[in-house]
């Protein structure tokens, strides 16, 4: 065991893992986090806590993780390189591990141009792959980049994101290989709506044996409506939603579209589970966490294994 987190144990035992995501609130009230935790508790192996996603200021990821932890949910801390230099990142890694947070997702973060504070300095001292390497160095070598000893190395099961659909496609698998080489224990993918394209991607991933070196968790986001699907297709960079998917959800009356979205997410999970090399699913029910239990149940993912 590298970190001994529940997620690591579930994967090590060969189970199909389930993670979800809870975004912290835009305020200091812990109640929204507690409310969200109820929906994921016992339904996932670990739950991501986002780090100022879309560059909008929110409660910190570490604090959000602690609220989940107190509610009995294993947290998975997202950490972006946009806002902190390597000094602050390392310090927060030590702090998070000391608080019992043992899953980490390394990201570069959405550019600050998207958020309310577009005038902020963007730090990007290191990138997400270098953060992966750094976390691994602290954990495995017990050394800081300076070579000095870490007194009590942090324990993290370390992951990063992968977008099989972003451009240019030809380096998508090479990029995954870079992340694996940097030490990614697991990968959570961007939301998958184009299953054919994802299956082709996984074939390329398998051809290089990468699926055996890291645990790939396929990302699924239930659509709430045809409108949401069209909005995401148009406005979210790197989001591949085939017209066929939009047609299917648009074909049912508006009041039934949310349910259709859930059904389609379940259908996607069942299909993704059959893809060789997919070791779990990452359910990103954005501001719709209350649907996680239904999706997990209908996908046959409950009860979660006790390891």
């Amino acid at each position: 065991m590298k970190a001994g987190s529940n997620l690591e144990k579930v994967l090590a035992a060969g189970h199909f893992a389930v993670t979800a995501e809870c975004g912290p609130p835009r305020g200091a009230d812990p109640e929204p986090m507690r409310k969200k935790s109820v929906h994921v508790k016992d339904n996932v192996d670990a739950c991501n806590v986002t780090d100022n996603q879309t560059s909008v200021v929110r409660m910190s990821s570490i604090a959000g993780c602690l609220h989940l932890q107190a509610a009995g949910v294993e947290p998975l801390m997202q950490m972006v390189t946009r806002d902190r230099n390597r000094i602050a990142l390392q310090s927060d890694l030590l702090g998070a591990s000391s608080l019992g947070i043992h899953n980490l997702l390394c990201l570069s973060g959405d550019h600050q141009a998207f958020g309310d504070d577009s005038q902020a300095k963007n730090v990007h001292d290191i990138d997400s792959i270098q953060l992966l390497q750094l976390a691994k160095m602290l954990r495995d070598d017990g050394k800081f980049p300076s070579g000095k000893e870490v007194k009590g190395p942090p324990k993290f099961f370390i992951g990063c994101a992968a977008n099989p659909f972003a451009d240019p496609y030809e380096i998508r698998v090479s990029r995954l290989a870079l992340k694996v080489a940097a030490g990614a224990d697991f990968i959570q993918t961007q939301c998958i709506y184009n299953l054919e394209k994802f299956e082709r991607y996984m074939q390329d991933v398998r051809n290089r044996g990468l699926h055996e070196q890291t645990a790939i968790l396929a990302g699924v986001t239930p659509l709430k409506s045809a409108g949401m699907a069209k909005f995401m297709k148009k406005n979210v960079a790197g989001m591949d939603i085939p017209d066929e998917v939009i047609k299917r959800i648009a074909a049912v009356p508006k009041e039934e579209q949310a349910q259709k979205g859930i059904d389609m997410a379940v259908e996607a999970i069942l299909r993704l589970r059959q893809v060789e090399g997919v070791r779990g699913v990452h359910i990103m029910a954005i501001e719709w966490e209350r649907k996680v239990p239904e999706i997990a149940k209908k996908s046959g993912l409950l009860p979660r294994p006790q390891v």
Binding site: D110, H111, A113, H124, D127, Q130, A166, D167, A237, G238
Partner: peptide
């Protein structure tokens, strides 16, 4: 690269442009 990444491109590279602005070419592309 808008994020000065040393291992790019990020997930925001679309059809050769950067996520921050369609007028900005993706450096990693």
């Amino acid at each position: 690269c808008s994020k000065s990444l040393f291992h790019g491109p990020c997930g925001g590279s679309v059809e050769g442009h950067c996520e921050i602005d369609k007028e900005v070419p993706c450096g990693w592309q």
